[in-house]
Write a protein that binds this DNA or RNA. Sequence first.
RNA 1: GGGGAGAUACCAGAGCGGUCAAAUGGGGCAGACUGUAAAUCUGCUGUUUCGGCUACGUAGGUUCGAAUCCUACUCUCCCCA
Length: 428
Amino acid sequence: MTFTPKYNLIEELKWRGLHHQDMPGTEELLMKELVSGYVGFDPTADSLHIGNMVPIILLVHLQQAGHKPYALVGGATGMVGDPSGKKAERTLLDLDTLNHNLSCQRKQLEQFLDFDCGENSAELVNNYDWFKDFNFLEFIRDVGKHISVNYMMAKDSVKNRLEDGMSFTEFSYQLVQGYDFFHLWNEKNVKLQMGGSDQWGNIVTGTELIRRKGGENSKGYSLTAPLITKADGSKFGKSEGGNVWLDAEKTSPYEFYQFWMNTSDEDAERYIKIFTLYDKSFISNMITEHKGAPHLRFLQKELAKYVTTWVHGDEGFKIALTASEILFGKGTSESLRSLSEKDFLSIFDGVKKSEVDEIEGVNIIDMCGDTGFLASKSEARRALKENSVSVNSDKVSEDFNFSNSDLINGKYILLQRGRKNKFLVIKK
RNA sequence: GGGGAGAUACCAGAGCGGUCAAAUGGGGCAGACUGUAAAUCUGCUGUUUCGGCUACGUAGGUUCGAAUCCUACUCUCCCCA
């Protein structure tokens, strides 16, 4: 049976800016046979965030190119804790949290990959399954014997921690992850491990294990994506509220959409290649179009639309778009008031809110401070002095007092500080 | 084990008896300008019922008065062994 990939994966990843390094021979391997490759996910939280999208996208491309993707959730590795990039020892997660996180992440991973497309269907595996019955003595004899401490210490993830100290648990992490690769190679013929560039060290321990344990001609391959950066040097994937999650409960579709809308021109050009599957010529046309009229934010809109739809579906995208148009368009209090209660609520789904008993006669300063919209009354006063506070899209001053006629649909009031900070007050 | 330096607001970092809610820079927020961008400029950046109140590692003390002086404690860093 001959195999021809749909496209050259490495080449594809390179122009998209998704290629950092790979092991010699990886490209040849991908061109000549159907390769099973995997990426591991760390169950540190009960949702994946957009930082995890890059490894997911690696799997997506792997599958699109005709290869077989495995998504590994780290039921076992999560119990140990990856020291890569960490300055201090991590606290261990308890088992309930871990299991909860695993099942949440599992669901999210499922939406990106095709699990029913014949021989290159995706598969989900949990490394806890092969570690749970592996006893310690067996492990140090069968696995530990093949990797020297000197080798392990040379890894950046370990070296960086030598001064401040690290537990044996975290030190052994790379062996555990390395064994995953060996196991998948051995059991499922998985020949490739992918991940972020910070995973290079861990991945190589895996290929090393395969080489030493697997016998002659045993070889594992690796491929990493670069760390995603922002043009201004700040960390990618954070918004004001912290991480940008894929879970709609943690980051609403509106906030998610806004995150992408707010990327700078320079970043948008790079991100559209990374986070969408649009082809090369289509993307370069879009970039040209965007450069012709940058103020239209064409790239940002396309990027935000694509990724929001991918993660939250058409419905999620539509709500995010409507909300954005109302909040950032020429949103006047009239257009706010014209919304039905249902639309109003779905639009403000991602906006912080607070309930209040009485509106009539309440001063704006008390409202801002007491509802938690602003941190304190002092801050409210400051904001008002700056003329940055709006009620239902109209600027107000310090002496403003609410009355029931300010309520939208008889129960809501929209507070804003500047353009981007929004808050909903609900009358009980 | 011996010697030295230090701990200040989100971070860095000045202040060394009153004029200190604490210089300056960064960050953050807002305003102007814009494209929900970047750059730039401006303002704000403990809290308050605007009387105060709480703050300069922790606990005491000296003093009319302390971030500043003294004592003890905790922690951090550096040098020597």
